[in-house]
Write a protein that binds this DNA or RNA. Structure first.
Length: 284
DNA sequence: GCCATTTGACCGAT
DNA sequence: ATCGGTCAAATGGC
């Protein structure tokens, strides 16, 4: 089954990213080399995944992506392409993310409060509903849904709904004055990587875009990071992923400490989701 | 006491 | 009638 293989490949990528993270926390020369090796392996895997996705599904014919969905008068639920059910006429799905390495409850720079959980018909795992913690205090309308995928419990579908209007909690970023001085090229590459970390397919609906950054981030423009990132290419697939990762691998000359200082690096930590620790890698 | 999570009930859409 | 999204009371942790 092509889809299953695709998911397996992406799960392997997830494992490699986790391993990469461990090495990134070490500044030893051997870890840098190991990071490069891991990045090269990620390149190969993502290359295969992209090719697999291209042969498995047509380009975004009906998949509700953050981009294609915008402006639609009939938003469709990202996880149920057959029977969309919207409660509010004004509701509109904003971002669909399949995160290969996140539980995503409160680790994207915003704090979330869980307000519900539902067993979804045909899904192996329940769907959890979160809203912004500042909903009452600041009227922030942002919500998100998190659901384990059927194929791999380590992969989550995350749907963001609505824009944050609140002032989020302080992100895990360092002094801006220390940023952009070590390796501007690598920073640029990281930004490119973040923008291109997408594998979107119609049937599988896989997307790994950057998480919504904190409002205080200087790199955040006036527009949504999604519109800036253009995560889905004109062909409907994240065809630049390999290129971006490859460039990252070749130019990643930062040690762990420097990497953590990068403008685009938002955090890499673990959080509990159903008792399983899930790593989260955030870029913008 | 405050805040977050859990979970059954409720409601709107289909 | 069924399903998905939300509400709100109960509960627990700090």
């Amino acid at each position: 089954m092509e889809q299953h293989q695709l998911v397996s490949e992406l799960c392997r990528v997830q494992e490699l990213v986790r391993e990469l993270d461990l090495h990134l926390h070490s500044s030893s020369p051997s870890s840098v080399a190991q990071c490069r090796r891991l990045a090269a392996e990620i390149v190969a895997l993502t290359d295969r995944s992209i090719a697999m996705a291209a042969t498995t599904t047509p380009p975004c014919s009906g998949a509700p992506s953050p981009l294609s969905d915008a402006g639609s008068d009939h938003p469709q639920h990202p996880f149920n392409t057959s029977s969309p059910k919207k409660r509010k006429a004004t509701a509109r799905w904003h971002d669909q993310v399949r995160v290969t390495a996140t539980g995503g409850a409160d680790d994207d720079g915003h704090s979330w409060r869980k307000y519900g959980q539902k067993d979804i018909l045909g899904a192996r795992h329940p769907r959890a509903y979160y809203r912004c913690t500042h909903r009452n205090s600041q009227g922030c309308p942002a919500t998100k849904q998190v659901q384990r995928t059927d194929n791999d419990a380590g992969v989550f579908d995350v749907v963001y709904h609505g824009e944050h209007t609140c002032r989020p909690s302080v992100p895990r970023r360092q002094n801006p004055s220390q940023q952009q001085q070590h390796n501007p090229g690598a920073e640029s590459l990281l930004q490119g990587l973040a923008a291109r970390l997408t594998v979107a397919t119609d049937a599988v609906g896989v997307a790994v875009p950057p998480m919504t950054p904190p409002e205080s981030c200087p790199a955040r423009g006036a527009a949504s990071p999604w519109s800036l990132a253009s995560p889905i290419g004109s062909d409907g697939y994240g065809g630049d992923l390999q290129e971006a990762v490859s460039a990252f691998a070749m130019h990643q000359t930062l040690d762990a400490a420097e990497f953590m200082q990068q403008e685009n690096y938002f955090g890499f930590d673990y959080q509990s989701f159903d008792m399983d620790p899930m790593p989260s890698l955030f870029f913008q």
